[in-house]
Structure formats: structure tokens, C-alpha cells
Write a protein that binds this DNA or RNA. Sequence first.
DNA 1: CTGCAACTTGAAGTTCACTTCAACTCAAGG
DNA 2: CCTTGAGTTGAAGTGAACTTCAAGTTGCAG
Lengths: 147, 147
Amino acid sequence: METLTIGELSARSGVAPSALRFYEREGLIHASRTSGNQRRYDRAELRRVSFIKIAQQVGVSLDEIREALDSLPENRTPTKADWSRLSARWRYRLQERITVLERLRDELSGCIGCGCLSLQRCKLANPGDRLAAGGTGPQRILNPAVS
Amino acid sequence: METLTIGELSARSGVAPSALRFYEREGLIHASRTSGNQRRYDRAELRRVSFIKIAQQVGVSLDEIREALDSLPENRTPTKADWSRLSARWRYRLQERITVLERLRDELSGCIGCGCLSLQRCKLANPGDRLAAGGTGPQRILNPAVS
DNA sequence: CTGCAACTTGAAGTTCACTTCAACTCAAGG
DNA sequence: CCTTGAGTTGAAGTGAACTTCAAGTTGCAG
């Protein structure tokens, strides 16, 4: 088995076939076709899907993920070095995000408990970075099932 | 100034008036009315809005935030102790989330770089908890502006 | 060769968290 | 009193990330 069907890629990645087709339309992954027009995925695509899943957990939008994936070489299968370069970038973003959440954690009890939560001064509601800047759309991170 | 108009609450909280009306429809905040049917917010509502903003940064859905807020006493203005109790719950969730992201950070380079990213075994794509369990809808955490 | 699960498509639907709109009313300074 | 900025409503629109549907086609085991 050199290549994977959409069902196989779905099973191995945990991503629904409909989502994989959606990713393809969005230019995040690629597939070749059989004579009968069915998708066949190179094994290397598994790593792409994996990268997408991880980036989503970090909280990056598909638009940004596509940008990152576009920086991989198109003419050859990405090497370990290619992936390392990409992952280094995400590591930095991840660290930024962790720092924000840690600050949140460390100040949460005190800040809400003490009643300082009047928003103008509070570091929680107005963190130094632009995370709270707003922007349309849902921003749910945790799955409801996690609660 | 005992109470705040919607414009004032918006200015102080950084949440758009339309969002405040939306929160009210959703039962997350409350307002009294003037004789002319305009909203007047008790100063204590500011803390509710603040809590909503913080919880959203942690990645909690409005449904879950409402549940949490519903556990506050209805017959009196919440005390510091009430808020502390609530914040303790969030602190725990926050810590869970941080732990996941730290694991992600610590394993990202090695995992992607080494090519083990085949998803069946990889701790990254399939973390121990149910975070990756899927669920419909967007799961963006970071604002595009942050990039 | 047959049967059936797995695949194909485009279009439309869903959820979340809002925002925008139109048409209107209210509150307060001059 | 008049003007004007701020507020009111319900309905409809938005964007992200998918899912569902219907109607048809393909691929492989028996």
C-alpha cells in the first residue's frame, strides 16, 4: 500500500473525510486521483494533516496554517529539516500563548477575588498583547466534553 | 453615577454594545431599565463582563460561562468569596490547558522533526485527554492580529 | 459478473459569537 | 423647545470550520 484512500487517511488521522475534502478545497492538503477519480493520498500527506491538527490545538486559524504549509517546498517531499524549521516557528507561538495563560492563571484568584476587576487597570482583562483585541467569530478552545 | 449606560459599560469593558445586548439575550448579564426603556447597569455587572472576557481567553464557550455565572447567588451582589470560588474552578481548567500546551511545546520539535508524526502513536496529535476529540465549529484561539 | 461498501460532486445546512441594519425613541445641553 | 448623539428593537447577515444531503460512480471480494 503505497497510497491511502480518503477513508484510510481519515482513520489514521482521526480527521473526518468531509474535513479532508474541505482541507483540499482550501489548499491545505493535496491528493492524486485514480482513473476512476477517487483520491489517493501520498503517505507524506499524513504529516501535513498531523501538522494541521497540532496547529489547530495551538489555536491557529486555517488561513495561517495554509500560509505556513505554503512555505514547504512544492517540488519535493518535505525533509525533516523542512518540518523542523516550521515547528520552530510554532514553538515560539506556542510559548507566547502559554505565557499569556500562565499569567492568567497566576493572577486569576487574586484579581477576581480582590475585586480589582474593574477592567481599566486589570492585567487579566487587558493583557499586554493583542489577544483581547477582539475579532469576529467563536474562539472556543476547550472541547465541551473536557469540562 | 450609580449605574452605567450601555455605552459606558462598553467603554469601560472594551466589549461592544451589540455584544452586551447579545450577552443579555443569552442570559449572561442583566440590566434594569429607565422609564424610557434604556438599559442601566449596576456596577457589579462590570465584574461579570470581565469574567466573561477572561473565560473566553481561556477558551470556554458562552454556554459554559453562563453555567458558571448561574452558580453565583441571584438574590444578592456576589461577594469576593463567590468570585474566588468561581475563579478556583477556572484556575483548574486553565492549568489543564497550560499542561496540554506545554507538552505540545516540549515535544513539537522532536516529534515533527524526527518524522514520527504518523498520528497513531504520536502524543501530539492524540493527547491523553479528549481535547482532540473533535466537535463542530471553529476552534481558533489566537487572534489573527497576534501573528 | 454481481453486489455493496466506499467513493464522487456541488449545494445547502449548522454552530458559535457576534455585527449590521432600518426605523424608531430617549436624554440632555444650549 | 429643539437638536443631536445615544439608545431601542427584531431580523438578517457574517465568517470560520466544517457536516449533511442527494444522486450518482468506483473498486474489490466472492
